[in-house]
C-alpha cells in the first residue's frame, strides 16, 4: 500500500473541481457535469483493485 495513490486521487479531485468551476463559469453546465462524472469514474477505476482486495481480506478474516 503506497501513499502516492492518495496524492494522485487528491490531485485529480482538485483538478476536477477547478475544471468544473471553469466550465460552469463559461456557461456549459452539462459539459461540467460530464467532466465531474469522468473524474469520478477515473478515480473509481484506480480504486477498484484495492476495494476488491479489501473485500477478499474481510472474507478470509470472517472465514466465509
Amino acid at each position: 500500500m503506497d501513499v502516492s495513490l492518495i496524492f494522485k486521487i487528491a490531485g485529480l479531485g482538485i483538478i476536477t473541481a477547478i475544471l468544473n468551476l471553469v466550465l460552469i463559469k463559461s456557461g456549459r453546465e452539462e459539459v461540467a457535469m460530464m467532466t465531474t462524472l469522468t473524474g469520478v469514474v477515473i478515480i473509481c477505476m484506480m480504486v477498484v483493485n484495492l476495494i476488491s482486495k479489501l473485500f477478499d481480506s474481510i472474507r478470509t478474516m470472517l472465514m466465509f
Binding site: 494522485k8 490531485g11 485529480l12 476536477t16 477547478i18 475544471l19 471553469v22 463559461s26 456549459r28 477515473i42
Partner: peptide, 23 residues
C-alpha cells in the same frame, strides 16, 4: 468572453490530468 479564458485554462488543466493519470 465565453471561450477565451475557458480554452486557456482547459488546456493546462487537461495536461495536468493526463500527467496525473499516467504517472
Amino acid at each position: 468572453r465565453k471561450n477565451e479564458k475557458m480554452y486557456r485554462s482547459l488546456g493546462f488543466l487537461f495536461g495536468i490530468v493526463v500527467f496525473i493519470v499516467l504517472v
